[in-house]
Design a binder for these strands. Structure first.
Lengths: 376, 376
DNA sequence: AGGGATTAGTTAGTCCGGTGAACTAACTTA
DNA sequence: TAAGTTAGTTCACCGGACTAACTAATCCCT
């Protein structure tokens, strides 16, 4: 079962546990069950969550009053006893604004419903904007999406490049010229709705975990675009790291005799794997297949210690599918299997993302779902 | 702040949160504060935990009645107002039985107090025992320690080699001939006290985290002995992994052209780093310093992706200090710094264990503290 | 010396959320 | 039509934390 872990929400600093928290927790439990298994009766929910029918009725009643959940009538089949009334999440009761700031030339925005479906989408060319100008563009995009929304807004979720801390401050994003930019605060004060910001690879991991074909167990989503980043879901929740830099794998050196990297070092994973480098080397290669296999082997060698040490269950490659889903994927999988214990390698699933280019947008929506409803 | 995470304790399967759970949580909160910061007044505790003075008084009263906590009188300095009464954990109110099954020729046992201090210790030679015979020896050692204990026993903590699941079943420990051995259950039914079992490297990580010089933030403890294993503390709690095999880094291949390993592969980390191999290569080396540096570089290269991806704060080397704490440690640190981003490498601390050979025993005690009192 | 001011800890009463037991409701089966 | 079964609700209660208001013990200042 996916653990209920509010991501990004300001935790009670003390750690004390109020009755109110218990009630929110139980609400999340019910919502989680409804999201995961679809509509169910109150009695079903009571059985699956372990709460009493009384408590479930009370909580469901509350959520029905808020329109978050709706009654769907009786199911078709008929058994003995009073027929149940199914209740389900009203996926379009409220909408979420999701922003993806990870492309290098533009920013993407969407209105997403509670089921993770994109309702409308927009984008704005970045045209070289940096710093405040880039932040203004984000504000503008958010305003447009909110103005065009047909439902109440649950919150705004943002997947941003760079290192983002738990309070939604972008600590460092060279491409956008952001350093210590309190993006969540500025969006929140401007729009008045809850805002959650995380690194784009981390949101991708959340998206894949919640709406992708995730099987449970530890998962790593490796996002390959202009740069390379990773997001990790461990024991059911997103890893942040000591300085919020978990997943910053792009500038780990994998080959000290490799290419020069923009960061000043030599042989960073990005020089091996980032899309521009990959395409360039592919164009120059005598045998594209062999080149992809070789790249996959190197990637596998770098990831094997990570996969092995964490005993991960899934490795998801997200990026240009035509490059990743073939010789490269196969080589990564084989190399990792060859380099880890059977108990680890045999269980490992290596696959490409099932959500494609929307993974960051959808993940940004999950950020809001998790923060506001405790669902993930 | 260290997160309060019961390790090994059977979680309520449903996830529902009773008032009783809240009370246990608050008790843990208080105990945690007392363990971490030493004796404090009820009013201090109220301030630091965010609970009201009334609630704190109530909970402290309960724990004083159980002798878990004791009143220590007024502090020396005097300020305005009624002088407070300090309360502190009664470190010797109950004792813990800790077992370390990681040496290959014997098993170690100790009685440990709540402050992590070893009161008495014993050992038994293994003399080649396997399977049931080895299990019987463990039972015998536990019986002897319990019989000799002068205080009530809070529980038994065991650090075992091999893969151990969350319910205390040793899934696979070739050295002891255990495969799916329900060690926790058998010890519990024999002794009638709560039992917690975990992998020895994992308990080492717990020990170092709680009683070592841990600074907070992600930590990895690499244990180098007959084999090589790791334990990871991420976001304040121990990582288990998909098949409970997190930390099983010993048989990750780090050099495909390296030595043959007992596991059948070539160039596993163990062939590089396990104590017997290390000593053998050291004896054969022209320059021991250079050999240790070379080994450190290889280790650093294997760990850099892990440290970088997880944004760890501390890497602790546990094992023969005379081999680890010098050229090897320095080379590991330098290599990881050279191979990770500044935000990660600059913050990293690489050091040897402060608990020495007792780290597994002490960690096994932490297992019990965490499971029974919610302290870690 | 004596009355604030200040801080610690306790007592009394309240509120909140979940519970079990017992109810009503609505169906199937014989 | 009666018996059995399942869904959902009502009601009295309980545990645990909270607030408000107390007592206790000290310092400090006049």
């Amino acid at each position: 079962m996916t653990q209920v872990t509010p991501v990004g929400r300001q935790l009670r600093p003390s750690g004390k546990l109020l009755q109110e928290d218990a009630r929110r927790h139980h609400r999340s439990l019910l919502l989680q069950a409804l999201f995961r298994d679809g509509p169910a009766s109150r009695a079903d929910l009571a059985r699956s969550t372990g709460l009493t029918r009384v408590t479930v009725s009370d909580l469901v009643g509350e959520m029905v009053a808020e329109k978050l959940v709706e009654e769907l009538g009786a199911p078709v089949g008929s058994r003995v006893g009073k027929p149940p009334t199914l209740v389900g999440v009203a996926a379009d009761s409220t909408h979420i604004i999701a922003l993806d700031l990870s492309p290098d030339d533009r920013i993407l925005g969407a209105v997403v419903n509670l089921a993770g479906k994109v309702i409308t989408r927009t984008e704005r060319p970045l045209e070289g904007r940096h710093g405040q100008a880039a932040q203004d563009l984000v504000h503008e995009l958010a305003d447009e999406l909110i103005a065009g929304a047909t439902k109440p807004i649950l919150g705004i979720g943002v997947g941003s490049p760079g290192v983002v801390d738990a309070r939604g401050v972008v600590l460092d994003a060279p491409n956008l010229g952001w350093h210590g930019t309190a993006l969540a605060d500025s969006l929140r004060s401007r729009t008045g709705v809850p805002v959650f910001v995380a690194n784009d690879a981390n949101t991708a991991a959340l998206g894949e975990h919640t709406y992708g074909a995730a099987e449970g167990g530890g998962m790593m989503v490796l996002r390959i675009g202009t740069g390379v980043g990773a997001g990790l879901i461990l024991e059911g929740s997103l890893l942040h790291g000591h300085r919020a830099a978990a997943g910053e794998i792009g500038h780990v050196v994998v080959d000290p005799r490799g290419e020069q990297c923009a960061c000043g070092r030599t042989g960073c994973l990005e020089t091996l794997l980032a899309e521009p480098h990959l395409r360039r080397r592919l164009a120059a290669a005598a045998s594209p297949q062999r080149m992809l296999t070789e790249t996959g082997k190197r990637l596998g060698a770098a990831l094997a210690p990570v996969i092995g040490t964490l005993n991960l269950h899934e490795l998801v490659l997200s990026g240009p599918t035509e490059l990743l889903d073939g010789a490269l994927r196969d080589a990564v999988e084989k190399t990792i299997r060859d380099r880890t214990m059977p108990v680890i390698g045999d269980e490992l699933v290596v696959r490409t993302s099932t959500l494609g280019d929307d993974v960051v947008l959808v993940g940004a929506a999950v950020l809001v779902l998790a923060g506001e409803l405790g669902v993930s």
